[in-house]
Structures are given as structure tokens and as C-alpha cells.
Write a protein that binds this DNA or RNA. Structure first.
Length: 354
DNA sequence: TCAATTTGACCACT
DNA sequence: AGTGGTCAAATTGA
């Protein structure tokens, strides 16, 4: 495993580099092809090395644990003026290492979902200032809340709808009421402000801001502020009631109306390294292999007809951790996920060369 | 009629 | 003074 680990790291790095350079090299398939072949070559070597070392299932399991340990050391992206305390998601009290909502990305850019936890401090001020005069109650004009008065925020990104109403924000299981929209300096697209529909009834402080990215109008950036105190606001019966400490729920594919699966077990959710399987899909076609994993994202081809058989999986993304899962958590030596992935790679590449 | 959205204005913050 | 977050009146739609 000692030999495979650096290779694996290198492979992941190359994949990430490719992902980063996709915008610039999107019209240059040769570069993409070259990078992809290099990545595939590296992962093939990794596979060979591990196969040699994998003399027993238990050993294989240990390797998987080792990789997962390594992956756990990957960083959660933190940004903002004030970092939260190292061990907690200040919004929901999660430990960062267990932070949920490392959402399964479904945008076509291949950019992984990133939770960006920001803490800014400062209690929320009262909305209305009431002064009890000796003989009467005087209501002063409403005091506007301080900016960032809600102490923490979580930033998520998700794909904007590609069909229908493009202005619809990602469905996230809560009901929101829009209360403002503003042009933001330096941003091409306006920012929309939402608060929980049940704010009045439950005094729910949850808010969110939705904005398209400048460089990627098909991606929404959603900033969640405050925690839902309303416990009856879910619009996602299939996934159960989002509890206040669950963090902002995962987006659903607004365009297709599909509720995406919760992608991670908690033990791995701190990892924000993603391999864009879109790359592999576009170049070498891994649909069958990837669709068999529980974290693959399916985007229904909106042109298709109804019925399960009409669902065409054509957009997948897998995090590195799930690559690891696919690589090491299969007890089958001959038909495991990696075999499927890489055998299809080879097959498809050869076909493309013809 | 009521709830949701739009939009200009207000105000906190830098 | 500029920017961004919020308010609230006006508007829209069910």
C-alpha cells in the first residue's frame, strides 16, 4: 500500500488539475484526452499494485481503511473572515469531520459540492424595538438587522436548472419565501434573498441567498444562514423530516425533479476531494460501473420518455472516497467496481481509437 | 382574500 | 460613500 498511496495521490491530483483546467481546455479535446489517459494509466498502475498486495479480503479491507484514513485527511474547505472553531460546524453543532452536506454534486461543471462554513459572530438583533413607556407602548421603526447578524453560514453549490424556469433555486427540502433581490457588484447575476416560509409562525431564523456564479451561470451558490427552528417545513416527504441539526439538506435536481441520494456515510463526509466522473464518462464511458454505486448522480435525460427504462444516466460524479469504496470495499476480485470501471475504460478507449 | 413576489428605499457596515 | 442585507408597499396570482 505504501507504493500505491503516492500514486493514488498523484492520480487524484492530476484529476483535480484536469478539472480545474476544464474551462480553459474544454475546446481542446487533445489535452483532455492526454490528461485522461495519464490519469487512467496511473489508476491502472494503482490497481495492479493493490491487486498484487491484496492477498486476502481482509488485507484488501485494511487497504481500503488506509485509503479512507488518508482521504479523511483531505481538507474541508473553510473560508471567510472568521474560521469556526476547529471541531464544530457552528451552525448545527456537527463536528467538522462529520460535517454533513458534502453534497453530491450534480452540476455539469464537475465542480464538487463544497461546504464552506463561515463564522462571523454576533448575536442576531431583535427585529423590532419595543419600548414600554410608563403609560403606553411605543413602537419604534423596525430596527434593521446587522449584516451577518446570523452567526454562521454554510455555502453550497449546486447546478441551476437547465430546463424550465432557470431562475428557480435548487430545491432543498425546505420552503422559502423570497424577500429581496439585489444586483451585486462584480456579479453578473442578481442575488436573491429567501427566508423560511414559517418564519412568522415558528420564529424560524433560517435564511438563504441564492446567486448564479459569474463564471458558471449553470451553477447556483447558495448561502444558508441560521438554523431552521420550524419542524414542519419539509417538502421532502420521501427523505423524512430534516432535523435542525442535519444542516441544509441536499439539493435536488430541479430540472428533473429528482431527489438526490444522500451521498456519504458520516465517516467520510469531511472529504471534499472529488473526482469528476464526468471526465471519465465523457471520455471513456463508465456509466454502467458508476451507476452501480450508491453515490452516482443520475440526471434524467429530459428528452426521454417516461418509465424506468427510459431513464438515461448520462451525468455522473463520484467523490474520491467513493472511488475508494469502489476500489476496496468490494469483496469480489473479478467483478468489483474498479474492474468494471477500468475494463470499460480500456474497451471504450480502444473503440475510440478505431 | 391571502400569500408570494417584486422592487425601491432604508440602514448597517466597511 | 459604497455595498449589501432587509424592510415594506405595491403588484401579481391562485
Amino acid at each position: 500500500m505504501e507504493e500505491a498511496l503516492p500514486l493514488l495521490y498523484h492520480g487524484c491530483k492530476l484529476a483535480k488539475d484536469l478539472e480545474k483546467s476544464l474551462q480553459n481546455s474544454a475546446n481542446n479535446p487533445e489535452i483532455i484526452l492526454k490528461s485522461s489517459e495519464e490519469i487512467i494509466s496511473i489508476f491502472s498502475k494503482i490497481k495492479e499494485k493493490i491487486s498484487l498486495e491484496q492477498t486476502s479480503i481482509n488485507v484488501g479491507h485494511d487497504i481500503g481503511v488506509g485509503i479512507q484514513q488518508w482521504l479523511k485527511t483531505s481538507t474541508v474547505v473553510l473560508s471567510g473572515r472568521d474560521q469556526p472553531t476547529p471541531s464544530h460546524d457552528p451552525m448545527h453543532g456537527h463536528k467538522i469531520s462529520r460535517m454533513k452536506g458534502i453534497q453530491l454534486p450534480y452540476e455539469e461543471t464537475g465542480i464538487g459540492f463544497k461546504d464552506i462554513v463561515q463564522g462571523s459572530g454576533g448575536p442576531a438583533s431583535d427585529k423590532q424595538l419595543l419600548i414600554n413607556a410608563p403609560d403606553s407602548t411605543v413602537t419604534l421603526p423596525k430596527q434593521r438587522k446587522r449584516k451577518d447578524s446570523v452567526s454562521d453560514k454554510i455555502v453550497k453549490r449546486g447546478a441551476a436548472p437547465i430546463m424550465g424556469n432557470l431562475e428557480l433555486p435548487p430545491e432543498d427540502g425546505y420552503t422559502w419565501r423570497k424577500y429581496g433581490q439585489k444586483e451585486i457588484m462584480g456579479s453578473t447575476y442578481p442575488r436573491s434573498y429567501y427566508r423560511c416560509t414559517h418564519q412568522k409562525f415558528y420564529d424560524c431564523p433560517a435564511k438563504k441567498q441564492v446567486q448564479r456564479l459569474n463564471n458558471d451561470p449553470f451553477t447556483f451558490e447558495v448561502i444558508y444562514r441560521g438554523t431552521h427552528t420550524c419542524h414542519m417545513s419539509s417538502t421532502t416527504p420521501s427523505t423524512g423530516e430534516p432535523l435542525p441539526d442535519q444542516g441544509p439538506p441536499s439539493f435536488t435536481d430541479t430540472a428533473a425533479g429528482i431527489h438526490l441520494p444522500q451521498p456519504f456515510s458520516s465517516s467520510l463526509s469531511a472529504t471534499t476531494h472529488w473526482l469528476s466522473m464526468q471526465i471519465f464518462h465523457d471520455l471513456v464511458g463508465v456509466s454502467a460501473a458508476v451507476a452501480s454505486t450508491n453515490t452516482a448522480v443520475a440526471r434524467v435525460d429530459s428528452c426521454g420518455s417516461a418509465g424506468p427504462s427510459a431513464v438515461r444516466f448520462h451525468d455522473y460524479q463520484l467523490p474520491v472516497v467513493d472511488m475508494a469504496d469502489a476500489m476496496f470495499n468490494s469483496n469480489s476480485s473479478s467483478s468489483n467496481s474498479m474492474d468494471l470501471i477500468f475494463s470499460e475504460h480500456k474497451w471504450d478507449l480502444e473503440e475510440k481509437k478505431e
